[in-house]
């Protein structure tokens, strides 16, 4: 983390005053923060704090009742996920969402779908320009396979892979879209220590090699503190802190939210 190829720049995406509720349930209320170019931003918070809802708002899966999202200087209120994908936002899911019967290679190829110029019929013919195009896409997928060191499972159906590798394939598919902004929903959940270390390495490498801006949700605090440039903390749908890992770690409100706080203690604290 000491050096990086690209310095952190201005805001790539700005969330302002976002409210999201499902019926009577308030998932997000008045959340504002920004994601800066080339940074790794972690969104943390206790269960049910609204982290996944936040990612879903950013990539247009949920539509907030209030508030705006400004991405690459363009302010929007409603967006469809495929439109988000077209503008360079890719994501992975908390519960792996791969095509289990398809090989690793084919799964990552699907990530290139939006980059395909030829229509379905051309591709079915696999001739001329369509063939050349497919070969170019295949080449870029191979670079991702090499990058993530998954050559040995290129032809293996994804359903047969262990969980940690499936997560890696899912990251590969998101990378295939060559995103500017990559959203990772709990990329290290359910992994053992070694798999987590590998995944951290890949997240840092993606950020460093491709300059991809990354926003990730993660529960493992040591991971968050290690790899992220800034941390946004949500609790009950509200943002309670925002800053560098060190600032957030020292933040009283954050400590309370995570450790819980009993009433007398908070009273004595106030008195003191």
């Amino acid at each position: 983390m000491t050096q990086r190829a690209r310095q952190i720049g201005d805001a790539l995406l700005k969330v302002e005053g976002v409210h999201l509720s499902f019926g009577g349930v308030k998932a997000l209320s008045d959340v504002s923060f920004e994601i800066r170019e080339h940074e790794i931003l972690a969104i943390i918070g206790p269960n049910g704090a609204g982290k996944s809802s936040m990612l879903n708002v950013i990539n247009g899966f949920y539509h907030p009742q209030e508030g705006t999202i400004t991405y690459k200087g363009e302010t929007r209120k409603r967006m469809k996920p495929h439109a988000a994908a077209k503008t360079g936002i890719a994501r992975t899911f908390q519960n792996i969402a791969l095509f289990r019967g398809m090989s690793t290679l084919d799964n990552i190829m699907t990530g290139r779908l939006l980059k395909m110029r030829r229509n379905f019929l051309w591709q079915a013919l696999y001739w001329g320009p369509a063939k050349n195009e497919e070969m170019a896409h295949r080449a870029s997928v191979e670079r991702i396979i090499d990058f993530l060191e998954i050559q040995s499972i290129r032809r293996t159906p994804v359903g047969r892979l262990p969980y940690g590798l499936q997560k890696r394939v899912e990251l590969g598919r998101a990378l295939a879209a060559e995103p500017d902004l990559l959203l990772l929903d709990e990329p290290m959940a359910g992994m053992n220590v070694e798999e987590k270390e590998d995944m951290c390495r890949f997240v840092l490498d993606v950020n460093d090699e491709f300059g991809t801006t990354i926003a990730l949700i993660e529960h493992d605090m040591s991971v968050v503190m290690d790899i992220s440039d800034r941390v946004v903390v949500l609790d009950y749908g509200r943002k309670i802190a925002d800053g560098t890992p060190d600032q957030v770690r020292a933040d009283r409100v954050v400590i309370d939210a995570y450790l819980g706080v009993s009433h007398d203690q908070s009273e004595t604290a106030e008195q003191a």
Partner: peptide, 10 residues
């Protein structure tokens, strides 16, 4: 041919 190596799947 004297040497081959598989690189980027080829």
């Amino acid at each position: 041919p004297a040497a081959r190596e598989k690189d980027l799947g080829i």
